[in-house]
Design a protein around this nucleic acid. Structure first.
Lengths: 174, 174
DNA sequence: TGAAAAGGAAAACGATCGTTTTACATGGAG
DNA sequence: CTCCATGTAAAACGATCGTTTTCCTTTTCA
């Protein structure tokens, strides 16, 4: 396994489980199985490592959401939560933890959220057969709500979001 | 102003803006206008201070949501976001930052979320005139989604949630 | 009046933080 | 054979962490 990929994978786990600030470099080097010298050679700094993790997670997450309709979108989230658990959105948490004051992290979060919003809007448009910005925002909110309510409500929250989305989509059809 | 209340208010601001771990005790003492000796006399520890902040915020937040119907619930959230801004749910963030491994914080979060869920269910029941657990979960998800999507979508996210909730409520009426 | 509680300022505690550096090992490529 | 990139192990860097302690002053109330 490539060094950088191994590092990113280990860092994603730790950051996701314990948070950005609470995860020390020693834990990262140990989990990645490399010396701090190598870690810094590849990542540059802790903040850049988090940005790397977020970029990697963005690709992985968005690839999972490459579906054709709104119902499949929530089905994909259901699978994600079942496989990876629910700890809330890593992007929003990273941004909140750092107060938005670390440029590389704030940039990665903004990029992901913009892409995510555009993606949802595209799926809604395709599903409905026409632009529907207001409906797309509602679906976005439902998705974000499922992500965060699942932290304490489990997969039921995602299923509720899925059912709610179906009603909203139906209500919007001619 | 009472010492403990002043401390809790200052700590809530700092924890909310910069996160739990990233907020040092020196910043807390300075913002609260007291020595570390006094802070520890009143709060006990940083973790207990966070638990105190969460308990205080729970009272303030729930009082704001003491309304009679679902639409008013989202109107109240709209006001909250307009006045206090949107940084995501402080409870979920505190729990995520600490990995759920700090008992007094995990306890405060669990208590708040249980109360919040019961509150939403009660409002939905009162609004609809009968128990509707599935609908209540959908409204809960919409509320949680509005809270978190507002971080990057602003008040529009709350308004979208409000509109979506109205449709879901209407669809559930006989 | 006088004891006790409460608070301030500041030093000190050991621990841990993110990061850099030093010294040494390994393994192809020219 | 040598060069150079790449890696490890470990010490060291100054800074900051949460917390306690020391010494002194102010307030409170019986």
């Amino acid at each position: 396994m490539e060094t950088t990929a191994r590092l990113a994978a280990a860092a994603e786990q730790l950051f996701n489980r314990h948070g950005y600030t609470a995860t020390g470099m020693d834990r990262l080097t140990e989990a990645a199985g490399m010396s701090s010298r190598t870690l810094y050679k590849h990542a540059g700094s802790k903040a850049q490592l988090m940005a790397l993790v977020l970029a990697e997670r963005d690709r992985r997450f968005m690839a999972r959401l490459a579906v054709g309709d709104v119902d499949a979108l929530f089905a994909a989230l259901e699978d994600w939560v079942a496989e990876e658990g629910a700890r809330g959105c890593l992007f929003l948490r990273a941004r909140a933890e750092t107060g938005g004051e670390i440029p590389e992290i704030a940039r990665a979060v903004a990029a992901h959220k913009a892409a995510f919003q555009a993606h949802v809007a595209a799926i809604v448009e395709h599903d409905l057969g026409g632009r529907a910005p207001a409906l797309a925002e509602q679906i976005l909110v439902l998705f974000e709500g499922a992500t965060h309510a699942a932290v304490y409500r489990g997969v039921d929250a995602v299923r509720a979001a899925r059912a709610g989305a179906a009603i909203l989509m139906d209500a919007a059809r001619p």
